[in-house]
Design a protein around this nucleic acid. Structure first.
Length: 997
RNA sequence: GCGGAUGUGGUGAAAUUGGUAGACACGCCAGACUUAGGAUCUGGUGCCGUGAGGUGUGUGGGUUCGAGUCCCUCCAUCCGCACCA
């Protein structure tokens, strides 16, 4: 009987679905597991194991062969863990809010929910084709109100919390309010925006609006006026990780800085914990490094420089502003800088402020005003992109003002320059040209002094400008000179001494700075979770928990309004009544929590009803994905985001798989929310995943034809150098092992109908190149096509056989025949002609050895995620057993269990033919028995000076001395020695003999 | 510039602790069977050489009886960050 994958695969996929074979058991069920009806054959005392894939955004393009790579590996791992006796949680869902469905809605008017469902159905069908062992009863969709109810709920927790630096965790905002009531904010050590000091009396005297405004400075989810990345083409703001090289990551549209009132997340409060947490988790080093980079911790000092009196008309400007007291004016005439090298403070010869620095206009002298303003205008006109692309051009301008050196009191000229970034540190630097390349370049360009303060160790070369002249020395290896009380100290000690002195003088302190900024959370888009906030007198208030979910209202068009408000502003009469919940007069809208949609007046707050406007921006794509792994544990809970019982039982994810492109986005946010939920006592762990695996990117592999420019004929690859040719892409699906299917090519397009070819060996050989997988390059391969031709088991095996999981590799269908043949051979071992037949005979030693070597190897391979080598081992085993003509149940049955992790359909079919009535998933991974691998004799390679010359078969039990004796007595060895005595003989028992002559 | 990763046949790759480099496949070559085959089976296949043999894991050096594996140097490719003070 032939192996027909198309027949058996559909059948087993149906069986798994009908029998819910891969349903993970809830802790409740396990508690009652002693009852005999626990069903499914699952044992009772199984430990939990959580295998998670990053859920996909259901795009219209469907899955391509890159997606399943990671899913297949996880599936093998999950199936293996089931066989090893674990209660495995292996769920799948959809990150179903997002821009593409909305862009499509804008173009066509189709509701994004409709597009999304259609795409999900395609994804589901494609995934089902591959035979994944997902527990589909736990599917989540982030765009489903029953799911985003809890995303909104978590948002409210974030809104209702602040970060206490003393406790080093998030605490409820109510605790902060208590403190304000009794002591004001003088003792508060929270992560917050700059907030003036106030007393308890002041706090208590303020009205609610004022109090709420102050609280926004502390909330972890907060509204503030800040510069954001505004993308006009997408009509929304973007988070830093969504902007690459000055353009949007999705779509590549230009992004500009814009001052806007925006929802943000105070993730920067967690910078240090996000950094520290990396130590304890098993994630790839490159990924951890990316996160460290992104967080960008640097240790140093903040130092305050006083702007010198008389050098500017600071005070005059102050008094024009009226209400500023002397404290503030004092504060305003100081410049705070951050430096990682406080030891080089005596090398400061000027200061540089970012052009956007708030002090610039105040300190600039009248004489320099024109120059400074011209420079600022020029800097503003340059986009971020230009500025980044052009880092070599040095530019700046002198403000005319001077600061006093904190130790010497000497005047230091204050410059502005766009090499100083407004967004990092304080937007001001103390420039030490002898210790920093950028300061050095600036000093050179503007002819500023370059005092030397570090003496390099004798053995290191002078850098920069050569002997005698001024140079740059950035290394921390050296001794301080020309630096008063720091002279003679090593850099490391000098840093400490400088900080101590600054602190003693009250003009500076040791400080740690992070590059990571707070994450912008609002999006001016439709297809996302509505932010559950309403406004009373312009002040944000949380929607009551009982009114969640705050569902998306229906709107007529998915575009911003004429006045530039987000699409949600189009929802007629959409507003919030703290008694009834959200209301709307849109007939099809579902209105929150038990209330029906009500007829309503003209626009928000109309018809005289006390209805408050709701927040119009929605949450970003990463909101739903920041906690979905928790929802899978308890997906249908309508009382909580997830029960404590489920969280305690499953714990954090054991194995999390996904692309490395999420390093600074999703994977930081999910860690942030996990830590936050831990702080509030909802979780017993503070990292989402103990182990994380990045599957390598699957690149495209394009094929090319070469058209002769003169004749228009297509020249085969090997002959093309004799012609003047143009390379053109050809669909990889009509090329097999670089040989073009000429018939298919001619029929592919009208213009190729009469194409002529210059062949080599009667074949047209195509060229190839690795490129991005994309439609325009005709190199996209759809898993459905592979499955149709070879079957899902072949696809699964082949994707693994391609190479190490974590390596980037081009997709190349060449070679798939090999695994396809393997499966046929495996199938045929159980068949004699047309009948299924296995023998009940006792296995031989050789057969047992082949089996147990495979049991061992595959187990080790899966544990260390070396999925490609298991496939080789299966082939080796089947080849050996074939040579031995083995069809014994005692060998083939356990082998089928081992193979079932990779090729589950064929394994199920054989398992049932072997007489089992239950799924092979409920089998046990066969026990490995070392004794079957022990050989009686060893074939020793005998090498001379490390070069193997012959092999000798010797008993495995033979000792070192005896082996040496026997080897030296051997005739061929003697012949090679030509009578000379060897200098040395090395015998490694069981491995090798090396004779040194 | 900084950081991370990777370099092994015509191709994908293996070699987990330093112990016969190239397992397992693809492709290619030769043969068998067949009316035929993009089917199946057998044998061969790193490179140079008819051969004995030589040579060979990006480059150059080192440690070792022995190095793809450990150490140093340089080169190339990919990824991330990038005027981060």
């Amino acid at each position: 009987m032939h192996y027909y994958p198309e027949k058996i695969e559909k059948k087993w996929q149906q069986y798994w679905a009908n029998n819910k074979t891969f349903r993970a058991k809830d802790p409740k069920e396990l508690a009652n597991a002693n009852s005999p009806s626990s069903g499914g054959g699952q044992g009772e005392a199984k430990p939990p194991f959580y295998v998670l894939d990053m859920f996909p955004y259901p795009s219209g393009a469907g899955l391509h062969v890159g997606h399943p790579l990671g899913y297949i590996a996880s599936d093998i791992y999950a199936r293996y863990k089931r066989l090893k006796g674990f209660n495995v949680l292996h769920p799948m869902g959809y990150d179903s809010f997002g821009l593409p469905a909305e862009q499509y809605a804008i173009q066509t008017g189709t509701h994004p929910a409709i597009t999304t469902v259609a795409n999900i159905n395609t994804f589901r069908r494609q995934m089902d084709n591959i035979g994944f062992s997902f527990d589909w009863d736990r599917e989540v969709r982030t765009s489903d109100p029953s799911y985003y109810k809890w995303t909104q709920w978590i948002f409210l927790q974030l809104f209702d919390a602040c970060y206490c630096k003393n406790a080093d965790k998030a605490i409820p905002i109510s605790q902060l309010v208590e403190e304000f009531k009794t002591n004001g904010n003088k003792d508060v050590n929270a992560h917050c925006d700059e907030t003036p000091l106030f007393s308890a009396d002041e706090w208590n005297s303020w009205d609610e609006a004022k109090q709420q405004t102050i609280l926004l400075n502390y909330r972890i989810a907060y509204l503030s006026e800040a510069y954001v990345n505004w993308c006009p083409a997408l009509g929304t703001v973007l988070a830093n990780d969504e902007v690459k090289d000055g353009v949007s990551e999705r779509g590549g549209h230009p992004v500009e800085r814009k001052l806007m009132k925006q929802w943000s997340m105070r993730i920067s409060a967690y910078s240090q914990r996000l950094l520290d947490g990396l130590e304890g988790i098993d994630w790839s080093e490159s990924l951890k490094e990316q996160q460290r980079n992104w967080i960008g911790r640097s240790e140093g000092a903040s130092i305050t420089f006083k702007v010198m009196e008389g050098a500017s008309d600071v005070r005059n400007q102050m008094s024009e502003n009226g209400n500023l007291n002397s404290d503030v004016s004092n504060l305003m005439s100081e410049i705070e800088v951050f430096t990682t090298r406080p030891d080089t403070i005596f090398g400061v010869s000027f200061m540089t402020l970012a052009p956007e620095h708030e002090l610039v206009s105040q300190i600039t002298t009248p004489e320099q005003k024109a120059e400074i303003e011209a420079y600022i205008a020029k800097a503003k006109a340059r986009s971020d992109r230009e500025r980044m692309a052009d880092v070599k051009t040095i530019s700046g301008a002198f403000t005319g003002a001077y600061a006093a050196h904190p130790f010497t009191g000497n005047p230091i000229p204050i410059w502005i320059g766009d090499y100083v970034l407004a967004g990092y540190g304080t937007g001001a630097v103390m420039a030490v040209p002898s210790g920093d390349q950028r300061d050095f370049n600036f000093a050179k360009h503007f002819n500023l002094p370059i005092p030397q303060v570090i003496e390099a160790p004798a053995n290191s070369l002078p850098l920069g400008e050569g002997q005698g002249g001024a140079g740059v020395y950035e290394s921390k290896d050296g001794t301080l000179i020309n630096s008063d009380f720091l002279n003679g100290m090593k850099v490391k000690d000098a840093i400490k001494a400088a900080i101590a002195k600054l602190e003693e003088m009250g003009i500076g302190e040791g400080k740690i700075n992070y590059r990571q900024r707070d994450a912008v959370f609002g999006r001016q888009r439709y297809w996302g979770e509505p932010i559950p906030i309403y406004y009373k007198d312009g002040v944000p208030y949380p929607v009551k928990e009982e009114h969640l979910p705050l569902t998306l209202p229906e709107i007529d068009e998915y575009l911003p309004t004429e006045t530039g408000e987000p699409p949600l502003a189009r929802a007629k009469g959409w507003g919030y009544d703290p008694e009834r919940g959200a209301v709307s007069n849109s007939p099809s809208a579902t209105v929150g929590a038990g209330s029906n949609s009500l007829p309503f007046g003209e626009g928000q707050g109309g018809a005289g009803e006390a209805v408050y406007p709701l927040e119009l921006s929605t949450m970003p794509g990463w909101a739903g994905s920041s906690w979905y792994y928790l929802r899978y544990m308890d997906p249908n809970n309508d009382q909580e985001f997830c029960s404590k019982e489920a969280i305690d039982y499953w714990g954090s994810v054991n194995y999390y798989a996904g692309g490395a492109e999420h390093a600074t986005g999703h994977l930081l946010y999910v860690r942030f929310w996990t830590k936050f939920l831990k702080d509030l006592g909802y979780l017993p762990f503070d990292e989402p995943a103990k182990k994380l695996v990045n599957q390598g990117m699957i690149q495209g592999r394009s094929n090319f034809l070469y058209r002769d420019k003169k004749s228009g004929k297509f020249v085969s690859h090997g002959l093309k150098d004799g012609f003047d040719v143009t390379a053109i892409h050809v669909d990889v699906n009509i090329v097999d092992n670089e040989v073009l299917d000429i018939e298919k090519f001619r029929n592919s397009r009208e213009e190729y109908k009469n194409a002529e070819f210059i062949l080599e060996d009667d074949k047209y050989i195509c060229g190839w190149e690795v490129e991005k997988m994309s439609k325009s390059k005709y190199n996209v391969v759809n898993p459905d096509d592979i499955i149709e031709r070879y079957g899902a088991d072949t696809l699964r095996l082949y994707e693994m056989f391609l190479g190490p999981l974590e390596d980037a590799k081009p997709w190349n269908t060449n070679g798939i025949e090999g695994v396809s043949r393997f499966l046929k051979k495996f199938w045929n071992m159980f068949h004699a002609g047309d009948t299924f037949s296995v023998s009940e005979e006792e296995p031989t030693k050789k057969e047992l050895k082949a089996l147990h070597a495979t049991i061992k190897k595959v187990q080790e391979d899966i544990e260390r995620l070396s999925f490609n080598t298991s496939v080789s081992q299966f082939m080796i085993c089947v080849n050996e057993l074939n040579d031995l003509k083995c069809n014994k149940r005692a060998i083939l049955e356990p082998l089928t269990v081992v193979i079932s992790t990779y090729a589950p359909h064929i394994a199920e079919e054989i398992w049932s033919l072997l007489g089992h009535s239950e799924s092979i998933s409920f089998a046990e991974y066969p026990a490995f028995n070392e004794s079957y691998l022990v050989e009686d004799s060893v074939s020793y390679p005998i090498s001379f000076n490390g070069k193997t010359r012959l092999n000798l078969e010797l008993p495995a039990s033979m000792g070192k001395e005896e082996v040496e004796k026997v080897v030296l007595a051997n005739a061929e060895v003697q012949e090679r020695l030509e009578g000379a005595a060897p200098k040395k003989v090395i015998v490694v028992p069981g491995r090798i003999v090396n004779i040194v002559v």
